[in-house]
Amino acid sequence: MSGLTTKELLERFRVGDRRACAQIISFVENGAPEATLLLDELYPMMGRAYRIGVTGPPGAGKSTLVEKLAMECRRQGKKVGIVAVDPSSPFSGGAVLGDRVRMSSLFTDPEVYIRSMATRGSLGGLAGRTKEVCDILDAFGKDFIIVETVGVGQMELDIAEAADSTVVVLVPESGDAIQTLKAGLMEIGEVYCVNKSDREGADRMVMEIGTMLEMRAKNDGWMPPVVKTVATTGKGVEELFNKILAHRRYLEESNRLSERRRKVIRNEIERIIEERLREVFYHQPGVRKRLEEMVSDVEQRKVSPYQVADMLWKMYFGNEQRRV
């Protein structure tokens, strides 16, 4: 099946062939030349799925929680796509993607599709093509798409942008770290979840989160609820899912869902243009070479990086003044 044309691949995709879906995801993930065409073709089929981002510190039990959320969706007859993102090794570029270990009960359900992704080059952020992979699963007919990432660095901000609802998962022991968390995780959640809540300190954690959220700068009409769960037994998962649905209703009724998605579309167009500009720019004959040559001059403080940029800019745009 490896030698299929894009047309054949799309035909199979449309009849629900998981292998075709998997291969289209790979094309997109690898930035293959076929990718743009495939995404164009699938575009009309997208926009129906609801996207849930799940993030939190390592060891919070995210994968198990995602498994249980997916089971809850299935119980309600909904189809689910899961994208589990793990960091690539900065040294080798390889990765061990182990989130599936916690999701094995979903493996043979034909209405659940799981894809593990490595962040690859993207600097500490979400895997470069995560959004597109969600788009493809959306087009594949999934009702819910759950994206799981480790909440560190840039990733949590990216996920908040790519998801319709962002769930932040914490554990009772996160209490001590909450002060340092507030800059990141405490800003982005729309639903908070205290997992492993059968452990000591769960109620205190719930209260602390509540306090933090009241102080949060902008809640624009939505006060994020805090739910207690024990993912290993499934306790509280139904309630968590209901809170996510409540957030969805809020977004839809206040027209914010469309607002958000328009923003995402705008960002995406900008990103595509930026990517192309970058590509075109660096593909100019001589630009890369000249840049390399100038590095040692900068190193020896003969010129500043800005001056080099100006010089390269002129190679492309001529004399137009672009320095800001």
Partner: peptide, 10 residues
């Protein structure tokens, strides 16, 4: 009692 699954460790 329920069942158990391992934390993935490498």
């Amino acid at each position: 009692f329920g069942t158990y699954s391992e934390p993935p460790m490498f």
